[in-house]
Design a protein around this nucleic acid. Structure first.
Lengths: 299, 299
DNA sequence: TATTTTGGATAAATTATTTTTATAATAAAA
DNA sequence: TTTTATTATAAAAATAATTTATCCAAAATA
């Protein structure tokens, strides 16, 4: 029971005529005859009585005709459901981000998105960058706004949204506090509090020291930058934080021989297609990036 | 959106694989690829993400899949409705008959039919034979059990069920009452009460007289045989009635030179197919005819 | 990292199906 | 009876679907 044959059947039933139905469908009369014959063979019963000059539904034909609207309706709904995805954006949006980005970068974007697409239910998960990468890879989350890994990562597409300069920070009573500039070697003499290895930020700093052949005196580590900042402020050691987090109780030290930075950006799967809501969010991020070459907000 | 393509889509979605879906449907993998491509072109959207080794529904695909059961259901119902016509007989049965047949011949058949097919709603219409013929011809009624027209009638199929011998009847006080036999010429001298021209019974009698070149003295006519019988009984004239209606207050006269008879039978359209209930009734009539070569019931 | 394996896409050839053209058959209308 | 209108049918043509063979990309394996 192909749908096109049912349509032919309906056209004939509505006109009690094969030939005018054929005209209406832009086909020839024998084509209609064949389609009806196909249905009749499939259902093993006649659908029309062939009276001399016209044609009339049989009992079986009437039974079938009465079900055509339901079939059309169900098919119409199915098509509608698919096409409606191009209309108003709705449905859930699974989004991962870091506490830091969620706190300092995303709020204006989220509120603008919520205004534009009020029917999207935002499901935000706070994760380390690496965890986020892994969940995107597995398709468990559509989109992440996190610290980008240096270099390319297989199966993922990334796009930088913000350059986030990092800077060394110490408490005002730290021995290095009044220095204009410091070297990595000098820093390596003092205790450090840094983000864990499972964050790209932590890896960036460590890699930097490793390349210079300098060791690190690691104190306790946490991935939550606000906490890190607090630990540095109470004097547990020097740390590296986004310059934008500079503020009361900490002062920044300029590195003599290099500068540190990380990229914040959006990560998606390279093959999986995005849901409408994810695509909308992705698009919004890009326009924000272009329009707002503004300085990042302070803490 | 042909149904077979939707089935292919469903098969792929259930397995996240084109090739195993192909196996399941007894087709090759490229055939499935093409069917999915057709759907995707029609809906102007991808239904699957082609990940390296497997395949996964897109948002559009998920939307479509959720509607497949409804489509299957509506199509299943349609097919079911047609096929169920071969099961239990039900629905309305439009049947025409004459008062006489309805009163004297049909009751046992109707009750047997009702017992066999309790779900059929009998819609009986009492009509003159000619009216019944016309309504059958127009397809307004499926089946009639009436006096059959002499000879063939275009567009209709008839089948005799009972031979109904007719006889001349008079009241006991009629001048011809004590005669053993009468001739048409003798009858033509007396007033007659006969069924109208619109009944075949009336026409049979008139034709008989016309062939013999004899005139008829017609009194008032009615088509309702019971009334005719009453009129003859009270002395309004001689009449012709089924021999089975002979009884108190009337006596029959044997015609010297001929004998009159009519056929009672069933009439259907020669091309239109009968509904299940009509076919069942038609079949029952034929078996009754064969089994009951019994004498007809008396008044 | 290189190689093999797996699964989908694609092109060409083949096969099936559908459609058309032309004609027959039939019944209704003139 | 002839004409006309309608569907059925056969053969040819056109179209569509399927298969075969091959390619390509991504994963798995060595």
């Amino acid at each position: 029971m192909e749908f096109s044959n049912l349509q032919a059947f309906k056209a004939v039933a509505e006109r009690n005529s094969f030939s005018t139905a054929a005209q209406a469908l832009g086909l020839t009369q024998p084509a209609i005859s064949k389609r009806i014959a196909l249905l009749e063979a499939e259902l093993e019963t006649n659908l029309f009585d062939r009276l001399g000059r016209s044609v009339e539904l049989t009992e079986a034909g009437r039974a079938l005709l009465s079900h055509i609207p339901a079939v059309e309706k169900s098919l119409g709904h199915a098509e509608r459901a698919v096409r409606d995805l191009n209309g108003d954006v709705s449905g859930p949006l699974q989004l991962a981000t870091s506490h830091h980005i969620g706190l300092h970068r995303l709020p204006p974007i989220l509120s603008s998105f919520k205004r534009k697409h009020p029917h999207v239910r935002l499901e935000i998960e706070f994760l380390d960058s690496e965890q986020a990468y892994e969940r995107i890879r597995r398709g468990e989350i559509e989109l992440a706004v996190v610290t980008l890994a240096p270099g390319n990562v297989s199966q993922l597409d990334t796009e930088e949204l913000w350059e986030d300069p990092l800077t060394v920070m110490v408490a005002p009573d730290h021995p290095l506090a009044d220095r204009e500039t410091v070297t990595l070697r000098e820093l390596s003499k003092y205790a450090a509090v840094l983000p864990g290895l499972e964050t790209f930020t932590g890896r960036i700093v460590r890699q930097h020291f490793a390349q210079a052949g300098e060791a690190l005196q690691l104190g306790m580590a946490t991935n939550y930058l606000e906490t890190l900042r607090m630990m540095a402020a109470v004097g547990l050691g020097w740390t590296v934080l986004p310059r934008t987090m500079l503020g009361e109780g900490l002062q920044s030290l300029k590195l003599e021989d290099s500068n540190l930075k990380r990229s914040l950006g959006v990560v998606v799967h390279h093959q999986r297609s995005l849901s409408r809501s994810a695509r909308a969010f992705h698009d919004l991020l890009q326009t924000e990036k272009r329009s707002c070459a503004l300085p990042a907000p302070t803490v």
